[in-house]
Simulated assay, not measured.
Amino acid sequence: MEFNIEEGKHLHEECSTLVLPALSIGNVGQLAVDLLISSTRADRIGYFDDPNILPCVGNDAYWPAPRGHLALPLEAYDSPSNALTIVQQRSPVSKGMMVEFAMSLADFAAASGKKHIVVLSSLDFVRWQMIDMSSGLQIYYLSSINTDGTDDECEKLGWKRLPEYNPAQRRWKYLSDLAEGNALQEDSTEFEDEAGEEDYYPSLPFAAMFSCFKAKGLKVTCLMCYCSEGDNIPDSFHLAEAASKFLGLSPDNRQGNEGGKWVIPFSWQSLYGPPPDMSLF
């Protein structure tokens, strides 16, 4: 992975926290990151060139001007006033290359002096085992603070540790060994042949990121919510609010927007394509 700094830009040393999505069902993590970037007025400082991520290109996702500012598959934004670097990922990782991709991201985070990594992702609602809607949509977390994945700060916010996390489970252990250089990626063929229910969560991108960042000695927190495919904008607001609360981004210190409200990214205007041609009706 190669990180390319835009002309006249640089990584800010004070941006010690890195926020990024892990692709999953409904793209909720990416949408939440969109909200964080647009609402903090984070400035794009560069982009990543990685052979493991599929290529894509599009119009500027956040602002209608200046024209010609293209959106790329993997970009980095800095918000020095909030001490944040935010990475947005717009295309998936090539099949079978997720761990290698996560290792490259962990190398970048360590080399650029990041202290805390916050990963935003979503989980399949079909696999929600203990449904409790009494307090609305629940945020689940996974932290490197303790070996069992718990974090007192997250618990105080009313969130629940992902109950399916078990560091001794075979695939979680394999990910940990792989990230620490004690296993070969070729050894994963047995998981493809004999994947069980307990292998679902550690097979997701957030698990590879969690293991690789943790192996680098970095503090990492994954924030997740359950969702289904469809209109996931409400889920993205829910996850972005959780991340904002966790990072201490109160509405008053979201930069450059009226009344501290969330700023809807420009690209969301065409999220579901153009409106129908009314002459057809």
Score class of each variant (00 low, 15 high):
N4G: 01
L11T: 01
E13K: 10
T17M: 05
N27D: 10
V28Y: 11
G29E: 07
L31S: 10
S39D: 08
T40M: 09
T40E: 08
R44D: 03
N52D: 00
V57T: 10
D60Y: 06
D60N: 12
W63P: 00
A65Q: 13
A65S: 12
A65N: 07
H69M: 03
A71N: 14
L74Y: 04
A76S: 12
A76P: 06
P80S: 07
A83C: 08
V87N: 00
Q88E: 01
Q89G: 00
S94A: 12
K95E: 11
M97K: 13
A102E: 05
M103S: 03
F108K: 10
I117N: 02
V119M: 09
V126M: 04
R127L: 12
S134V: 03
S143I: 10
S144Q: 13
N146T: 00
D148W: 01
T150M: 02
R161Q: 01
P163D: 00
R171S: 03
L178D: 11
G181M: 06
L184E: 02
E192R: 15
F206C: 06
A208N: 11
A215H: 13
G217C: 12
V220F: 13
V220Q: 08
C222D: 09
E229L: 11
E229C: 11
E229A: 15
P251N: 15
N253S: 14
Q255M: 04
G256D: 02
G259R: 06
G260I: 07
W262R: 09
I264H: 04
P265C: 02
W268G: 07
P276S: 04
M278S: 03
